[in-house]
C-alpha cells in the first residue's frame, strides 16, 4: 500500500450490453513507468480515462494515495494527461498552452513565466513561447503537449498513445526522451500503447490487456521470456505456437517428437500450447531435431526471417545466417527455448 500511488480495484465498465472492462485489479507504484499494452479495443484507453476521471467506472474503486477518488471530477485530480493527437489549444500560442494550468491555479505571473521557461527547456523547445501551435511540427507539438502536462508537476502522468502520430525515427527518439524525463522527474507514468516494442523499451512494468481483461503483468523481460498464454506470446514479439501435450513433467510432445523442457505441473497428457520464439531456433544444414525445407527468406536488417516447412508446419526462424530457398535444413531447440502454456479456451 505504502508504495502504491494508484490502485484499481475491480474496475468494470459497460456501454449498454458491451462490457469493455471486466474487473481490472492493478496497483501502480510511485516513480513507476507502467504501460498498458494491448490491441485496439482491449479497453486500455477506457481504463486510462477512468483513472483521469473522464469516464466513470460501472463498478470498482480508483484509489489515489489511499483515498477513493471515484467521485472526484477530472479538474480536481492530481494527475495530468497527454492526449492522443496532442489536443493542444489551437487558438493559443505555445506559452498560452503550457501556462494554462498554472494560470488556472492563479500563480503569480513571474512564477508562471519562470516555470514555462524551465519546462520548455526540459522538452528541448527553449524560446518557443511566442510560436503559434500550427507553425510547429508534429514532434514539436508532441513536446508541447508533454510540457503542458508536466509543468503542473503532477505525481502521475497519463499518456494516451502519445507517439502514435509520429514517424518511426522520431518515435524512437521520443521514447528515449520520455524515459529520460520520467527518470529525471521521478514521477509515475501510465502509458497506453498498442506498440509492443514501445512498451518493452520504456516500461518498468507492462500490463498486457485483451478484451477488457489483464492477460499478464510483469517486467518487459518477464513478459517477453515467459509469456503466460498464447495471446501474450502472440502479441509480444513473434512466435511459433504449436499444439502439444505433456506426458510427464519436463517432457513435451509436439510435431511427432518428444523433447525435454523446463515446465511442469500439468495433468498427465494435458493438451498445451508450445511457444517457441523465432530467434531461439538454431538452423543447421547437417543435423537437428526437425528436418525441413526453407520456403522463403526476408532480409530484416539485423537478421534474416526464414520460413521453414517441416512435416506440414511452417516455422518462423530468425537467423543471422541465410540459407537460400529450397535448402534442406534441420532445426534444433534446447529445453529452455520451449515455453509451455496452458490452453485458454476463450481466445481465437
Amino acid at each position: 500500500m505504502s508504495n502504491a500511488i494508484l490502485r484499481l480495484e475491480g474496475i468494470r465498465k459497460s456501454y449498454g450490453e458491451e462490457e469493455v472492462l471486466k474487473g481490472i485489479d492493478l496497483s501502480i507504484g510511485r516513480h513507476e513507468f507502467l504501460t498498458l499494452l494491448g490491441p485496439s479495443g482491449c479497453g486500455k484507453t477506457t481504463l486510462l480515462r477512468i483513472i483521469g476521471g473522464f469516464v466513470a467506472p460501472s463498478e470498482g474503486i480508483v484509489w489515489y494515495d489511499g483515498t477513493n477518488i471515484n467521485k472526484l471530477p477530472p479538474y480536481k485530480r492530481q494527475l495530468n494527461t497527454v492526449f492522443q493527437k496532442y489536443a493542444l489549444f489551437p487558438h493559443m500560442n505555445v506559452f498560452g498552452n503550457v501556462a494554462f494550468g498554472l494560470q488556472i491555479k492563479k500563480l503569480p505571473k513571474a512564477t508562471i513565466a519562470e516555470k514555462v521557461k524551465k519546462i520548455l527547456q526540459l522538452v528541448g523547445l527553449s524560446g518557443f513561447e511566442d510560436r503559434d501551435i500550427e507553425s510547429l511540427s508534429g514532434g514539436q507539438q508532441q513536446r508541447i503537449a508533454i510540457a503542458r502536462a508536466l509543468v503542473n508537476e503532477p505525481q502521475v502522468l497519463l499518456l494516451d498513445e502519445p507517439l502514435g502520430a509520429l514517424d518511426l525515427q522520431l518515435r524512437k527518439d521520443m521514447q528515449l526522451e520520455l524515459k529520460k524525463i520520467q527518470t529525471a522527474l521521478g514521477i509515475t507514468f501510465i502509458y497506453v500503447t498498442h506498440d509492443q516494442e514501445e512498451a518493452l523499451t520504456m516500461s518498468d512494468k507492462v500490463v498486457v490487456m485483451n478484451k477488457g481483461e489483464i492477460q499478464q503483468m510483469g517486467t518487459p523481460v518477464d513478459i517477453y521470456n515467459e509469456p503466460k498464454n498464447r495471446f501474450v506470446a502472440d502479441f509480444i514479439g513473434e512466435s511459433n505456437i504449436i499444439d502439444g501435450r505433456m506426458p510427464a513433467d519436463r517432457r513435451v510432445v509436439f510435431l511427432g517428437k518428444e523433447l525435454e523442457c523446463l515446465d511442469g505441473g500439468f495433468a498427465p497428457d494435458e493438451a498445451v500450447d508450445v511457444v517457441i520464439r523465432p530467434e531461439d531456433i538454431r538452423v543447421s544444414t547437417t543435423e537437428g531435431i526437425f528436418p525441413g525445407v526453407v520456403t522463403s527468406v526476408v532480409f530484416k536488417g539485423v537478421h534474416y526471417e526464414m520460413m521453414v516447412q517441416s512435416d506440414g508446419f511452417d516455422w518462423m526462424v530468425h537467423s543471422t545466417l541465410m540459407e537460400p530457398v529450397g535448402t534442406q535444413v534441420y532445426l534444433t531447440l534446447g529445453p529452455d527455448d520451449i515455453h509451455i502454456m496452458k490452453k485458454v479456451a476463450a481466445h481465437e
Binding site: G52, P74, L79, N80, A87, K105, N152
Partner: peptide, 11 residues
Amino acid sequence: NIYHAALDLGA
C-alpha cells in the same frame, strides 16, 4: 479532447 485537456489542467 481539447475540452478534456482543459479539465485535466484544472479548469
